[in-house]
C-alpha cells in the first residue's frame, strides 16, 4: 500500500511566536524527507503536528494509505516515532514495554518477533532487563524497536542518532534505508550526515 503525506498551509504559533506558517509540501511513498534548521525553528513541533500530538494553529496534515484518508485512530497505527520527547517505561523490561504497546494497539504480542527486533536494534539478550538500567544509547535503540514493532508505513525520526555510538549510527542508516523501501521516513536533524540520506529536504528558518 502506497503512503502519502500532504501538508497544506500549515501554521503553528507558540506563545504568540510564529514557528512556521503557510507550510505546504507533499511526501510520496519511498521517500526520505528531512526537516533541517537551527535550534528552536520548529522542527520537532512540525513532527509533533504530523504525529497528531499537538494541534496546528491552522492548516492540516492529510495522511493517505492507498486511496484511504486516515482518521486519527488509523494514523496511530500507521506512524512510528523515535524522539527525545518519547520515553518508555523504566519500571518495565524491554519485552514488557513491547508487549504493553502491542496490547493497547490491539495487536497480538509475538514474542519471537520482539526477540528478532531487539536483536536487530542491537539489544540481543537484554529483553528481560528493566529499561531503567539501560544507558541512553541503549534507550535510543529500544525506541527504534518500539517504533518499528507494529510495522508502520511512516517512520518519524527526531534527531535519530542522538546518544548513538558508531554501530548505532550504522543502525540508523540501515533503518532509514529499509523504511524507504516500505514507506516514508520523515526526519528532523541538525546532522549533515543524516540530512544526506534524504530525497527531499525542507529548511525551516
Amino acid at each position: 500500500m502506497q503512503a502519502q503525506i500532504a501538508v497544506k498551509n500549515l501554521a503553528k504559533t507558540y506563545h504568540c511566536r510564529k514557528l512556521f506558517y503557510d507550510l505546504s509540501f507533499l511526501v510520496k511513498n519511498n521517500t526520505v524527507f528531512a526537516v533541517i534548521g537551527h535550534n528552536g525553528v520548529g522542527k520537532t513541533t512540525l513532527l509533533r503536528v504530523i504525529c497528531n500530538l499537538v494541534p496546528a494553529t491552522s492548516g492540516c496534515v492529510e495522511i493517505t494509505v492507498g486511496d484511504r484518508l486516515l482518521s486519527a485512530a488509523e494514523r496511530r497505527a500507521a506512524l512510528g516515532l523515535v524522539s527525545p520527547e518519547l520515553e518508555l517505561y523504566g519500571e518495565l523490561s524491554a519485552f514488557e514495554n513491547l508487549e504493553f504497546f502491542s496490547g493497547v494497539r490491539g495487536i497480538v504480542f509475538n514474542r519471537e518477533k520482539a526477540r528478532e527486533i531487539l536483536e536487530y536494534v542491537g539489544l540481543k539478550g537484554r529483553g528481560h532487563d528493566l529499561v531503567s538500567t539501560f544507558s541512553s544509547g541503549m534507550m535510543q535503540r529500544l525506541k527504534f524497536a518500539h517504533a518499528l514493532f507494529h510495522d508502520p508505513q511512516i517512520l518519524v525520526l527526531d534527531e535519530p542518532a542522538s546518544n548513538m555510538d558508531g554501530e548505532g549510527v550504522a543502525l540508523v542508516r540501515e533503518v532509514i534505508r529499509h523504511q524507504r523501501e516500505r514507506g516514508i521516513v520523515i526526519m528532523a536533524t541538525n546532522e549533515q550526515r543524516e540530512a544526506s540520506y534524504a530525497d527531499q529536504t525542507l529548511s525551516l528558518a
Binding site: R76, L81, E85, L86, E87, V104
Partner: peptide
Amino acid sequence: ESGTVVALKLAADPEPV
C-alpha cells in the same frame, strides 16, 4: 512527568486509557 505520555498517546485510543 516521565514523558511516557507521548508513547501512550501515539499508541492508544483515549477510551482504553
